[in-house]
Nucleic acid binder design. Structure first.
Lengths: 233, 233
DNA sequence: GAGCATTGTTGCTATTATAGCTACGCATCT
DNA sequence: AGATGCGTAGCTATAATAGCAACAATGCTC
């Protein structure tokens, strides 16, 4: 819902911040302008402003990457989100299944991982490890996309897959059909707009029990955020 | 360094975002205006813009708190920062000392914790658990404040303490002198602008060995960010 | 419940913060 | 060396924004 007088500079500035944060090795001013469809001088001004705040910094090659204040933002966002803290105990229990265990959110048709643990990995190593991944090729992504109202903007094949996801109540993604590498995704109930997934080699008969595990974990995570208003802390 | 044409809306909008993120139970428009010294209508407009982006949401009592897009920001900032991922293996090793183990950064004379583990706590439980804490009463805060160029803005007693911190090379804070509850803080070398700390009941003769532990951990964390430019990933 | 104080927010409009254009020095590639 | 693309400063027109006033909603006290 657009407010009476939205602040366009803030919106574009946040888009620039979110883009630079996703490029730890740096991104150029003009490249970002092309990506975001904005005028280069404007991008440069927003980047310079972020650099002044310490949220971006320039590399030797004049590209921009996250600056030291990004750690502040990470700390603040982690605290303000509270999701990771609530979710990790439940995700840890899924480690015994010897699959990838992941928690993610949607950003511009891409999945952004809060947690991504490969088999055998410690929970603490699963943090901030993986960047963006195309949503339509991920269990998390498909589960979350299926929750959206309007599916018309997707190609026919994706739309069909999203309808199946809705009917099943979970996402099942096979990047390479027939290979049995699969990703199962389930949305966390409540207004969190996040999802969890198990990925790896998954035989047919194993799908339903794993979905049950996911649902249990998702319910546990969602139960700690059941109140849409003041949360206990 | 202020750019040629800074974007004030972005700066103020980010201040509003950082404030709302730190209030999980909500903060009112006019209260925030008073806190930030800005005009209420302006705050309302910035908040409404953030709400449109999902980064804020209004409570039943009309206050603003973090919205669902905060999880996206947390995921992105965690990935863009990379600090937690690098630091946690080193921090885990400090758990055996049976003290509070913490990693934090400075924000407006307050410490913002990325990691704060009480004795006996699992590393995964230490995330996003604690909000802001006054910097001058924290080992992390004092260690980071001592790194700043200009100490003139602090009261005489704090300034003297900061000079001692500089001379020692680590921070030693005693919230209640004589009680032996202490907080030891050490800055992570390199441009990270973060620090780690051990806190709890610490006897005199135990201080130096603990500082050595902290320095070792800080050096380990900093070594993984030794290049001020393109980082391996 | 009534009265009062505080709050969140809208519309209007003046103003100034911002955006775009141009040009220039710098970096990279052939 | 030349060509191309880059990051960015200065200038200036303009439209995005800020502040004021007013109003509906909420909270507090008696």
């Amino acid at each position: 819902m657009l407010p009476a007088q939205p602040n366009q500079s803030l919106m574009d500035g946040l888009a620039v911040l979110q883009t630079v944060v996703g490029h730890p090795d740096g991104i150029g001013t003009r490249q970002m302008a092309r990506d975001l469809g904005l005028e280069p001088t404007r991008i440069n001004r927003l980047l310079k402003t972020l650099a002044h705040l310490g949220l971006a910094q320039q590399t030797a090659r004049r590209k921009y990457r996250p600056g030291p204040a990004i750690h502040v933002l990470a700390a603040q966002a982690l605290f303000g989100s509270g999701l990771l803290q609530r979710a990790v105990p439940h995700l840890e229990k899924l480690h015994r299944l010897d699959l990838i265990v992941a928690l993610g959110v949607l950003w511009r048709d891409q999945v952004c991982y809060l947690y991504h643990a490969a088999p055998g990995m410690k929970p603490s190593q699963a943090l901030g490890r993986v960047g963006l991944f195309p949503a339509t090729r991920s269990g998390i992504g498909m589960a979350l996309l299926a929750e959206q109202k309007d599916l018309h903007r997707f190609p026919v094949a994706v739309r069909s897959e999203l309808r199946q996801t809705r009917a099943r109540g979970y996402a099942l993604v096979e990047p390479q059909p027939g290979r049995r590498e699969r990703s199962l995704g389930v949305v966390i109930p409540g207004g969190t707009q996040a999802a969890i997934a198990l990925s790896g080699v998954i035989a047919d008969q194993r799908v339903e029990p794993l979905v049950a595990e996911l649902r249990q974990a998702a319910a546990g995570i969602g139960a700690e955020e059941s109140s849409p208003y003041p949360r206990s802390r």
